[in-house]
Design a protein around this nucleic acid. Sequence first.
DNA 1: TTATAGTATTTGTTTAAGCATATATTAAAT
DNA 2: ATTTAATATATGCTTAAACAAATACTATAA
Lengths: 133, 133
Amino acid sequence: MKEKKFDLELFFNALADRTRLRLLNLMGSDEICVCFFVDVIETNQPKISRHLAYLRRAGIVSARREGKWVHYKIVRPSNEYAAKILDVLLESFTIDEQMQIDRSKLANVCCNLQLPIKPIELSRREQPVYLLD
Amino acid sequence: MKEKKFDLELFFNALADRTRLRLLNLMGSDEICVCFFVDVIETNQPKISRHLAYLRRAGIVSARREGKWVHYKIVRPSNEYAAKILDVLLESFTIDEQMQIDRSKLANVCCNLQLPIKPIELSRREQPVYLLD
DNA sequence: TTATAGTATTTGTTTAAGCATATATTAAAT
DNA sequence: ATTTAATATATGCTTAAACAAATACTATAA
């Protein structure tokens, strides 16, 4: 079973959109629920879902369903150079004003930033998880 | 006089195209004439010019006219993160088979790869140069 | 059945290719 | 010198394809 080749063009295309960069910024090192993205980016949910699907196809994020909710997180791309590039990109968000505003908005709607275990989710029992795509 | 902000989306879009990646690979650390790109990529000249213009607008390459010829080279993006990303990208070309094939084709049509001074150009007197854009 | 998220469809916009043409430079001819 | 031709490169224009947004609809879980 051969690994399918990592598509650098798809990768860069995925990063060439402000909404998708904002989504990556919000994920940072945490796992974030779709509904929080909708709150922070202040747009409709299908649009967020479509951009998340784009990032998924590019091998940049993964999804995990937990009950009604789907959580997304950044995954390390299989291509080592893409992984390095993603690291630098995430680092670059620290000097971007809007990205920092987004992060504080997320901290408001979602009190679990910075916490190793998320209080809200503690009250829900763990479900048998499955991955999309 | 305020520097205009570096456009990360434009930068990533510029990198999200195989032809443009091939052009960057061919430039590497050298300054290359448009006619060599046309020879190596084996496509029409307007297409090459268009992609080079795209890279120029994204702040990734610069052009220098010397007589009838225009030479392109990679420039360090003003955004430090973009510069780092470009470094990693160029490094990634070393493990890409087609990129290496392109480089050897270039070495054939253009004997000056690896040489600090290009023999062909030595026979032309230096012109007052100007930059496009 | 209600909340959450994903998909399908339509529409408008962006992008790329191909072709033709314009511009810049040099060389050659008058 | 001035015109003409040739070469190298850039740019308009048109068409086709890809992409994004909005809306409506479907699927899943509680």
